[in-house]
Design a protein around this nucleic acid. Structure first.
Ligand code: FES
Ligand code: FES
Lengths: 171, 171
DNA sequence: CGAAATAGCACTTGTCAGATACGATTACCA
DNA sequence: TGGTAATCGTATCTGACAAGTGCTATTTCG
């Protein structure tokens, strides 16, 4: 299975382009840049604009530009918008407020709680990544050796790690 | 999007049943237990047996039982088998050895490296969860406050715990 | 031998991502 | 004031794959 759909993947690419070219660009320019279908790029940009990530300006000199700084957008937030809600399983809704009991096994299922914890752990990883980090070619995410440094990290205990209960306060 | 397909979700349920009933059980019993289609359960068990998670015994007194202790199976391993390879994007294969350059943007794409790092972080979370933890009703995963336990895991995830709470501000 | 169970495969069906298209609206410019 | 170039909104089509069913062969026990 693939976590990011192709649409979300291209959305990241497009946002990366708009991030580097601060002047922004129109759909055709972006599509030409990446060799994609102009209609497809236009649709993705429309969806991004609808969710408030980019701002579109119409007219002959219009185009798209980032509506918010890239370091204020987390990967989790983008995926929650582009993909239709990030869930671990069918029975674990990401939004805890709407608890539609569509699963017939909800009573006998003992995995619901533990799976929710795993889901929150994954969400924490996505929340810790901002688009600015993702787009920075010299950032901490660009070193492939960062994976190895996982095991040989100095024993600096992450004392300041606030363990939030990970409650997505969705209005 | 949903990380675990319904098949994987039911596979976890079935494995949980086989874990609690050490004597094992046949497909019909399990299907009856959860109110699922016997054929569907049988197919899932067949696939689990094919991947070596459960051992099937034919004959009139046959059935399935866990082939390996539950604490030696990680959630990542199960998903890698049931689902067909856990990838973050289309262009980030989970297996680094086969580097088929199917993506036409592989040259111009600057996100490949950072996304791989994120992918590995997510994989670490899944690798840190064993089925035994998942099935234990009194385990660390059953407490909603188990997010604390991230810090006492063997230095896998949360390489740099970001102090920013990453508040999701809905516009 | 016959019943009961797994093993393996072929098949149908339903859903949704992926992708395209078109008209409406807006803004710039001559 | 008209024309053009862009976004905006929506509607639609299609292919791939998940979801689910069924059947036959094989094995084991009584
Ligand atoms: S399988 Fe639906 S609640 Fe666990
Ligand atoms: S989009 Fe294919 S390599 Fe980045």
């Amino acid at each position: 299975m693939t976590l990011l759909s192709r649409k979300a993947d291209y959305a990241l690419l497009i946002l990366s382009y708009l991030h580097q070219n601060t002047g922004g660009g129109n759909a055709r320019t972006v599509a030409d840049k990446f060799g994609l279908s102009p209609s497809f790029v236009a649709n993705i940009l429309k969806e991004l604009a609808h969710h408030g990530f980019v701002a579109g300006h119409r007219g002959v000199k219009g185009g798209y530009a980032l509506a918010r700084p890239a370091d204020t957008i987390t990967l989790a937030e983008l995926l929650e918008s582009i993909e239709s809600g990030f869930r671990l399983t069918m029975c674990n809704p990401s939004l805890p407020d709407q608890h539609h009991e569509q699963c017939s096994l909800a009573g006998a299922c003992t995995l619901k709680g533990p799976l929710t914890v795993v889901h929150n752990r994954l969400l924490e990883v996505l929340r810790a990544v901002t688009l600015a980090e993702l787009f920075d070619p010299n950032g901490s995410l660009s070193q492939p050796s960062a994976l190895l440094s996982l095991s040989l990290l100095p024993a600096t205990t992450t004392t300041t790690c606030r363990s939030e209960p990970a409650t997505v306060t969705q209005a």
